[in-house]
Every structure is written in C-alpha cells, then in structure tokens.
C-alpha cells in the first residue's frame, strides 16, 4: 500500500458541502409538504391534489438532475441532448392517457 499512501487529499471546501446539504434539505421539505397535502386536502379534490403532486415531483426531479447529477454545470450541448429527447415522454403521456379515457368510454 505504500505507493498509494502518498496521495495528499485536498482540503474540504465547506461551501460546497453546505450546498449539498441545503439541496437535500429542500427535497426533504418538499416530501414533508407532500405528506401534509396527502392528509389535509380531501381525496375528493382529485385535480388539485394531482396538480400539486406533479408540480412538486418536477421540482424534486430538477434538484436531483441539476444539482446531484451535476447536469446544470455541464456544457449546454450535453444538457440539451439529454433534455430534448424527453419530449417523447411527454408525447407518450398525453397520447396514452387520452387513449385510456377512450377505452373507458367504450367499455363503460
């Protein structure tokens, strides 16, 4: 192991560590808020609940991808080559939910 022990670790950047924990704190806060909404907003208000949950999920997804996966700090071309193809997911979502509603109309 003597050949590896001479590697000198660089000093800790306190600001960087703090930023990681602050991001984690935001995500924990959003998850707690989701729970509060799950138990306070009545189940009958389905549309309100779903919109809030979807919005909060997108915020959490942004923090994971941008900060934890570091995509925010990559070259613009890389960012767009990852983000643009996800429009197919949005397209699929709209098409399939529409289709599901149509199947429901036929069956019931």
């Amino acid at each position: 192991m003597e050949e590896t022990t001479h590697v000198q670790p660089q000093p800790v950047d306190k600001a960087k560590i703090k930023k990681i924990w602050v991001t984690a704190g935001y995500m924990a806060a959003i998850t707690i808020l989701e729970f509060v909404i799950a138990f306070t907003v009545p189940l009958e208000m389905a549309m309100t609940r779903v919109s809030i949950f979807v919005l909060m999920t997108i915020v959490k997804a942004f923090y994971i991808v941008a900060e934890f996966m570091h995509l925010k700090y990559e070259v613009k071309v890389l960012v767009w080559s990852i983000l643009i193809p996800t429009v197919f997911i949005v397209w699929m979502l709209i098409a399939f939910i529409y289709e599901g509603a149509a199947i429901y109309e036929i069956r019931f």
Partner: peptide, 14 residues
C-alpha cells in the same frame, strides 16, 4: 416512462 405511463393508461381505462 413506458411502465408508468401504461399504468396511467390502464388506470384511466378503469
């Protein structure tokens, strides 16, 4: 996405 969206399709068909 395919799995989750198909869940959405089947759910909205019930």
């Amino acid at each position: 996405s395919a799995l989750l969206i198909t869940y959405g399709l089947v759910r909205s068909a019930h």
